[in-house]
Amino acid sequence: MPYPKGHKIKVRGKIVESAARAFRTNGIQEVSVPFIMKGAGLTHGGFYSHFDNKEQLVAEACEYAISDTIALLQNVADQEEQNPKINKVIDYYLSPYHRDQTEMSCIFPALSSEISRSSEEVRQVFTHELERMINFISNLAEIDMSSGRALFSTMVGSLVLARSVSDPELSDSFLSAGRQQAKEMVKRKDM
């Protein structure tokens, strides 16, 4: 009996979503194709009917994860009635909740160091998605792209350091300092 129309696209989407979750939590190198397929509720034998290789999946998972993160952050911003709405996004991004929910959080803090050793295809997709995220942040903060790069770098760096240390108080202090500095960067544009 043939599968219903759209079945292959739906299955591919489940694989990409599973990969994005796994990569966010464990990185690229630590995640196997069988692990990803199991996370999608599938056997690993069907992987190659959807993807040429793991690199292709990494690229698609990056695109998916950034779209997911931008949608989430837009939703956070839409809940803020005061301007600048970016402050609500900064508070969320640099919160203990976002720090601790790695499987659903932003992919940039999780994968940036690994991407530098990935294929050119993956690096191009990652670069494009990074520029898309910076554009989103810049527009929300109403700042130029250069300032947006600095702002997002501060946010990502603060989150990376907060996740890296074993001392909970130190971790929280990185989040707090990052929030303060990020908001100061936004405030300076009005001066």
Rank of each mutant, 00 (worst) to 15 (best):
T43W: 04
N53Q: 02
A65E: 13
D52K: 14
Q56K: 15
H50P: 04
H50N: 07
E63N: 09
G46F: 03
A20K: 14
S49M: 08
A20F: 07
H50A: 02
E55V: 00
K38I: 01
K54G: 08
L42H: 13
F47K: 02
H44N: 14
Y48Q: 10
G41C: 06
T25S: 13
V33H: 05
T69L: 09
F47Y: 06
T69M: 09
V58F: 00
V58N: 09
Q56M: 12
T25M: 11
A22C: 11
H50T: 06
I70C: 05
G45H: 12
Y48M: 06
L57H: 05
N26E: 10
L72F: 13
R24M: 02
F35H: 12
A65W: 10
F47N: 00
Q29L: 02
H44V: 02
I66M: 12
G45K: 09
H50C: 07
N53M: 01
F47H: 06
I66L: 02
E60M: 07
A59T: 01
N53V: 03
I70L: 11
K54A: 06
Q29H: 10
I36P: 02
G27W: 08
H44Q: 12
F47W: 02
D68N: 12
K54L: 01
A65R: 03
D68Y: 13
Q29G: 08
G45N: 14
D52A: 12
G45T: 14
V31Q: 10
V33F: 00
S67N: 15
V58S: 01
G41P: 14
L72P: 04
L72K: 15
A20P: 07
T69K: 14
L72R: 15
D52S: 12
V58W: 04
G45Q: 12
I36R: 09
T43H: 12
A20S: 13
E63A: 11
L72S: 12
V31T: 15
A22K: 15
V58L: 09
F23M: 11
R21F: 00
T25W: 01
N26I: 04
Q29W: 00
E30S: 13
Y64P: 04
V58P: 08
A40S: 08
Q56C: 01
F47D: 01
E60N: 07
